[in-house]
Design a protein around this nucleic acid. Structure first.
Lengths: 212, 212
DNA sequence: ATTTATCTTGACCGTTTGGTCAGGTTAAAA
DNA sequence: TTTTAACCTGACCAAACGGTCAAGATAAAT
């Protein structure tokens, strides 16, 4: 561990932060792979490289750990959502949002997979969050899209269907990453391949709604 | 049970078929909700309305049951895949394929979710199937799309990206069905809403690749 | 130097889990 | 009628699981 002399408990605080981060990262991965019920605290401890009792020392229960990670994933999702503002230029906004979501899938695939698990099993823990924070955001974005349609800036498409298409397509690169890898001759997409995919996704969707 | 007199073991055969179907349906649902590891044989038995020992009487292990259902889901997927043939008319073929996939999500959401679980956790059981049957089919369809592009029938898009977009968008209605339901004021999509979504998905994608 | 607070962790506990078994029931075959 | 085969299932087993605890180590405060 750190050899730097501690001042005012900084060392103990650093120990806590380092261990918590290690456990959170391990847990995100294990929950992403197996879902809440399928994940074991033994496996999380193993990946985090700490004794199982330590997981419980820092996070009282498996569920507490799970909720903590989901909050973090939601915060990250919100950052991408913020790129979708009320600008007058739909092509610019939609391009920015799709790219932000694609990038999120690229840099944090486990978070997306964890979310997918959560939704697939019925959104047991996140139902309220989805029906409030996420739904309010979605409904307000749908109003913005409707405004663009009314102003003749884009085709008259059903806005919810468009948003679901964007969610689905962008998260696919995280959730079904392994399948895409198998299709790519068992190799992860290179940065170039991913950039090309991103550009094609943006292009097809923008043209699909009359913006390119 | 059936009161019809049996002839040549038909009754016993009917018992087996009925019980197997019940267990398979229950298992598909439980595996869809919780994934392989998170699902329990006790839960499957409960949903199937049979004693747990009966599950093992008909399917030796949990894994045998899981593999059996996955084979079935793959067969079903293949049926939709068959709509994508070598026709000269890309708009017609893509529309047919997208619609078949959307319908599959509508009539068999658990199968799609089970598949999603399988892929999210790394395609542990299905890796070979994906890298052979599915990949060969995908690669051959990509060649067909390239042919259409070469003939100037559609835009020069990256065919794999297009196929992933179709997979993602159509399966979203099954895998993230709960989220969509929450966004729909906690009500499942009506048939009319689903038909509208399907039409919009087809329209956006076809236009997005220069086919509408 | 001593005390206090935090960290560490092997061992343990009660519950859950996948799977087995023995004995009984029912239907079909001989 | 008897025998055979298939179905049924409560009880049980060993292993896995989430979580706890006591005792020791370490760092910080007094």
């Amino acid at each position: 561990m750190s050899t730097k002399p501690a001042v005012n408990g900084a060392h103990k605080a650093a120990i806590r932060q380092e261990n918590e981060e290690q456990i959170l990262a391990a847990a995100e991965r294990v929950f992403a792979d197996f879902g809440f019920k399928g994940a074991t605290t033994a496996r999380i401890a193993e990946i985090a490289n700490v004794p199982k009792a330590n997981v419980h020392y820092y996070f009282s229960t498996k569920e507490a750990l799970y909720r903590r990670i989901m909050e973090d994933v939601c915060d990250h999702w919100l950052e991408a959502a913020m790129t979708f503002d009320n600008s007058a230029d739909p092509a610019f906004i939609l391009r920015g949002y799709i790219e932000a979501k694609m990038d999120l899938s690229r840099v944090r695939p486990y978070g997306s997979r964890l979310w997918a698990h959560e939704i697939i099993r019925g959104a047991k823990f996140s139902s309220e969050y989805i029906s409030t924070t996420v739904k309010n955001w979605l409904d307000s974005r749908v109003e913005v899209i409707r405004g663009w349609i009314d102003e003749g800036k884009m085709d008259d498409v059903e806005p919810y269907t468009l948003m679901y298409m964007i969610f689905a397509t962008t998260q696919h690169y995280a959730d079904f990453g392994r399948q895409i890898e198998i299709f790519n001759n068992d190799k992860p997409l290179t940065d170039a391949q991913f950039a090309e995919a991103k550009e094609n996704v943006v292009r097809i969707i923008l043209k699909g709604v009359g913006l390119a």
